[in-house]
C-alpha cells in the first residue's frame, strides 16, 4: 500500500526507520476509521437488503432491492425529501444573503472590529440542539419575545404547518450566517488593494467594481461556503428535531430517525440511510474538489 520514502534517510540508520515511523503514524488512524466507520456502514448495507427489525427476534429474510423500491415509491418519504430540499434552499440562501451582506459591511476599517466579529461568530459555535431549544422559548406563541417585539399577536410559529419549516430555517440562518460571513471576509480581505485603486483611477462605478473585481475574486471561497452549508443543511437533524414535530416540516433525517428508532424498521431504514449517504457523498466529492482548488491558490 505504501512504498518509497524521503531522502533524508541518514536518520534511518538510527532509531526506527522512516518507513516504520510513517506506518506507525498513519495506519492506526486509517484502521480506526475503517473499523468504526466503514465496517458499520458495510454492516448496514447488508441489512438494507433484508426485512430485519432490531426490536424482534423474527428470522431475517433477504428481500433484494425491495426496500429501495418501496422507499422510492413511498409518498411520505418523498415529501420529506422535497421538504428537505426546500429547507436547504431557504436556509442556505438566507445564510448567503445575510452572511455575505455582513461581510461587505464589515470590510472597512471599524474600531473594535476584531471584537465585533468574534461576537457575531458566537452563534455558530453553540450546540444546535440547545439553540433550537431556546429559540422555542423565543418563538412561543403566547409569551415569546419574537411575537411581542414584532407585534405579531399569537402567531404559532412552530405548530403552524406552513410556518414551522421557516421558523426552523430562520434559526439556522441565525446560527450559520456568521460562517458565510467569516469565509467571505477572508475572501474580501484577500482582494489586492491596487485593483480597487486602479478602478477608482478609471472612474469605474461602484457597481462595476463590485461585479468585475470583488465578486470574481471572492467567488471561489463563497462557493466553498455555500457547498459546505448545503451539505450540512441536507443533514440537519438536531435543530428541527427539537423544535417542531410538524409532519409537514419533517426533514429526511428526522424521518430516518423515526423509521430506525421509533418504528424499528431496521432493514428499510438502512436502505433509506444509504440513499441519504449517496446524496451526501455526492456533495462531499464536489466540496472536496473545490476545497483542494482553493488550497492550491
Amino acid at each position: 500500500m505504501m512504498t518509497t520514502l524521503s531522502p533524508s534517510s541518514r536518520a534511518a540508520t538510527r532509531g526506527w526507520s522512516d518507513i516504520t515511523i510513517r506506518n506507525l503514524f498513519v495506519i492506526p488512524t486509517v484502521a480506526f476509521l475503517i473499523i468504526f466507520n466503514v465496517f458499520p456502514l458495510l454492516y448496514s448495507l447488508g441489512f438494507s437488503f433484508t426485512d430485519f427489525r432490531a426490536s424482534s427476534k423474527a428470522p431475517v429474510n433477504f428481500v433484494g432491492l425491495k426496500n429501495y423500491t418501496d422507499i422510492l415509491a413511498d409518498p411520505v418519504i418523498w415529501r420529506s425529501f422535497s421538504t428537505t430540499l426546500w429547507y436547504v434552499i431557504v436556509s442556505v440562501t438566507g445564510q448567503f444573503v445575510v452572511g455575505f451582506g455582513l461581510a461587505l459591511l464589515l470590510n472597512r476599517p471599524i474600531p473594535g472590529k476584531g471584537f465585533l466579529t468574534t461576537l457575531l461568530l458566537l452563534p455558530m459555535m453553540l450546540s444546535p440542539v440547545v439553540v433550537g431549544l431556546f429559540w422555542k422559548l423565543i418563538y412561543d406563541p403566547s409569551w415569546g419575545i419574537l411575537n411581542y417585539a414584532l407585534g405579531l399577536g399569537k402567531t404559532a410559529w412552530l405548530t403552524d404547518a406552513n410556518l414551522a419549516l421557516y421558523a426552523v430555517a430562520i434559526t439556522d440562518i441565525w446560527m450559520w450566517s456568521p460562517f458565510v460571513m467569516l469565509l467571505s471576509l477572508a475572501g474580501l480581505s484577500a482582494v489586492p488593494k491596487h485593483l480597487y485603486e486602479a478602478a477608482s483611477i478609471d472612474r469605474a462605478s461602484k457597481l462595476y467594481t463590485f461585479f468585475r473585481i470583488t465578486l470574481p475574486l471572492v467567488a471561489p471561497i463563497l462557493l466553498i461556503a455555500v457547498i459546505f452549508r448545503t451539505m450540512e443543511a441536507f443533514k440537519t437533524f438536531d435543530i428541527a428535531f427539537v423544535m417542531t414535530g410538524q409532519p409537514q416540516a419533517e426533514l429526511i433525517s428526522s424521518r430516518l430517525y423515526k423509521m430506525a428508532f421509533a418504528q424499528w424498521q431496521t432493514g428499510p431504514a438502512s436502505a433509506l440511510a444509504y440513499i441519504v449517504l449517496i446524496m451526501v457523498l455526492c456533495i462531499t466529492n464536489i466540496y472536496v474538489k473545490y476545497l483542494n482548488k482553493a488550497k492550491e491558490r
Binding site: N37, Y43, F47, K235, S253, A260, F261, L277, V280, Y287
Partner: peptide, 13 residues
C-alpha cells in the same frame, strides 16, 4: 461528512 443518523443505525446494533 457522514450524517450521524446514518452511522448511528449500525453502531446502535
Amino acid at each position: 461528512m457522514l450524517p450521524p443518523i446514518v452511522v448511528a443505525i449500525p453502531m446502535f446494533l
